[in-house]
Design a protein around this nucleic acid. Structure first.
Length: 283
DNA sequence: CATTTCACCTGGTGGC
DNA sequence: TGCCACCAGGTGAAAT
C-alpha cells in the first residue's frame, strides 16, 4: 500500500502521539514471516524502552528506542537511543495509535501497550509487512539501501541511471537506487516529466533526467501535504484517509481523458506492475 | 553482475 | 446469492 508520502504521513502522526511514551507490554501474533528478528526477541527488546522518536527512511518507519529508568519523565525525548523498531507496511499494512478499548481490527498482528494507556497497533491483511528490532549495541543502525528522492542532487540522480538498460519505470521502483518510490508515484512523476515508462533508463537525456528529478520531488511533496493517496484502504496513524488520489493524472485512470490533452490514458504491464501513461504527453 | 519473473497473502470487484 | 478470474500500493528469492 504505502509509498514514501503515506509512510511519511504515518510516521509523523505516530511520532506526534507516542513520542516520550514507554512500552509496557508487547504482543505479537504467530506469523513467522512478519518478523525479521524473532518475535520473542522483539517483545523483550521493546518492553520497558521509551519511544524517543519515530521517523521515515524510504518506505520504512523507524522507531528510536531508549532504555530509561522509570519515574523520570522530564526529558525522555532527549534520551540517547540504544535500539530501533523498524516497521515496513508492505502492501496493506497500517500502523495505528488507538485507545486500549478500541475494537481490535481483523489481522492485527502487533499491539504495543504504552504507559500513557494508548496502544500502537500493526494491522496487515496480506501480511507482506515486516517488523524488525535492532539493538544498537553490537548491531548497526537501520539504513535504507537507496538514496532519498527528496534530498538527492542533480548529479547524483543522473548517475543512478547511467548505463542501465532497464525501463525507467523499473529503475524508479528499484529500492536500492532510490528508496520510497512505488507504483503510484513512479507513474505520476513520469507523467509530470513527460517521459514514457518504457524508455531505457540509461538513454534519457540530461534534461529529461532533471525534469524527472524535479517532478518526483514536487509530486512527493504535494502528496505529503495532502496526507498521501488513499486508493483503497490506506489510512494514517489516526485512521484518516489522504487526498492525493484526487490529484492523480494517470494512476488507475485507464481509458479516462488525460487532464492535459484529453487523450485516453493507456495501461500496460511493465516490471509485472500495472503502468499508466498518456501516449501523447509522454514521449 | 543486471534484469526479469514469481511466490508470498487476503480481499474487493465485476462477469456470468 | 455463489463461483470464478482478475486485480491490488511491495519485496526478495530464484531463474535467466
Amino acid at each position: 500500500m504505502p509509498e514514501l508520502p503515506e509512510v511519511e504521513t504515518i510516521a509523523r502522526g505516530v511520532n506526534a502521539r507516542v513520542r516520550g511514551d514507554r512500552i509496557v507490554h508487547a504482543w505479537f501474533a504467530n506469523h513467522q514471516r512478519l518478523f525479521k528478528s524473532h518475535a520473542v526477541r522483539q517483545a523483550k527488546g521493546l518492553e520497558g524502552r521509551v519511544l524517543v522518536s519515530v521517523h521515515r527512511t524510504g518506505k520504512h518507519i523507524v522507531c528510536e528506542l531508549a532504555s530509561a529508568p522509570k519515574g523520570r519523565h522530564s526529558s525522555k525525548a532527549e534520551l540517547q537511543p540504544d535500539a530501533q523498531w523498524i516497521v515496513h507496511l508492505g502492501m496493506t499494512g497500517r500502523l495505528l495509535v488507538t485507545t486500549p478499548d478500541a475494537p481490535v481490527a481483523p489481522h492485527t498482528h502487533a499491539r504495543l501497550e504504552l504507559e500513557s494507556g494508548k496502544e500502537l497497533r500493526f494491522v496487515d491483511p496480506r501480511r507482506f509487512g515486516k517488523l524488525d528490532f535492532r539493538d544498537l549495541k553490537g548491531g548497526e543502525a537501520f539504513n535504507a539501501a537507496g538514496a532519498e528522492p527528496l534530498m538527492i542532487a542533480q548529479e547524483e540522480f543522473a548517475a543512478l541511471f547511467r548505463g542501465r538498460k532497464l525501463a525507467i519505470k523499473a529503475a524508479l521502483l528499484n529500492q536500492s537506487l532510490l528508496s520510497g518510490i512505488g507504483n503510484i508515484y513512479a507513474d505520476e512523476s513520469l507523467f509530470h516529466a513527460g517521459i514514457r515508462p518504457r524508455r531505457g533508463a540509461g538513454r534519457l537525456t540530461r534534461a529529461e533526467l532533471e525534469r524527472l528529478r524535479l517532478a518526483l520531488q514536487s509530486v512527493l511533496e504535494q502528496a505529503i501535504r495532502l496526507g498521501g493517496s488513499s486508493v483503497s484502504d490506506y489510512v494514517d496513524a489516526e485512521g484518516m484517509r489522504g487526498f492525493f488520489q484526487l490529484e492523480h493524472c494517470v494512476y488507475l485512470r485507464t481509458g479516462q481523458p488525460c487532464r492535459h490533452c484529453g487523450t485516453p490514458i493507456q495501461r500496460i504491464t511493465l516490471a509485472g506492475r500495472g503502468t499508466h501513461f498518456c501516449p501523447k504527453c509522454q514521449r
